[in-house]
Amino acid sequence: MKTGRIPQQVVVLSVIAVVVVAGFFGMRALFVPESFGKYGHYRADSVDAIRKLPIQYGGAKACAECHDEVAATKSQGFHRGVSCEVCHGPAAAHIEDPGTIKPTAPRQRELCPLCHNYSPSRPTGFPQILTAQHNPGKPCMSCHKPHDPVPPNAPKECSACHRGIWSQKLVSPHASLECSTCHEVPKEHSVDPRGFVVSKPTGNQACERCHSNAALAASAIPQVTSEHTARYLCWDCHYPHFPEGKK
């Protein structure tokens, strides 16, 4: 190799580098869709492509036209907010041709727990069960009508719908307290939770009746003076269903 000449390695690597870079731009030209980035970091044409997809669902109102009885029942029950096709599957084709194409009716036990199995992330008051323990082996329909799911008898425990709070309280210092210590519960709340609302404590006296040092409470209950909180509600700092005191 003479000095001044470009070394062979550099030539080879430059060729490869050019190929890689050209490959990169080639791939971009080939694979990046033309409309990419028109509106944002996505393919603008996908909007049209999605619009052209065949419509599978008939919509929440379409079924009532023919199944007015079922629709009427459901609109009075707890499932009034649940669309027919959530359980029966997409049924646009059925509306077009009700005689030959029939939607499935999910009669097995698997469907309902999708919404009703216990998960701490469900909203407060949502009716939940532990599927493995709730009347195992029997289809849900044998006791609950899917279009009007009233429980055969009103649940006795608040845990049926407030399991998260219930199980937290169970392991907290407040384990011995009934829910009704702090909440006034109308009997009908278990049957019609939105019609009969449970009261919630509004002022600190709800806690002070046990925790104020002026209260006539058992000595085992930790007590605080009026300086402990001057301007705040006790539950601004202590979660009532799982209060923490000693750090």
Binding site: M1, T3, P7, Q8, Q9, V11, V12
Partner: peptide, 8 residues
């Protein structure tokens, strides 16, 4: 690149 001269 098969050049293995000293310079390479």
């Amino acid at each position: 690149a098969t050049d293995i001269s000293d310079a390479a």
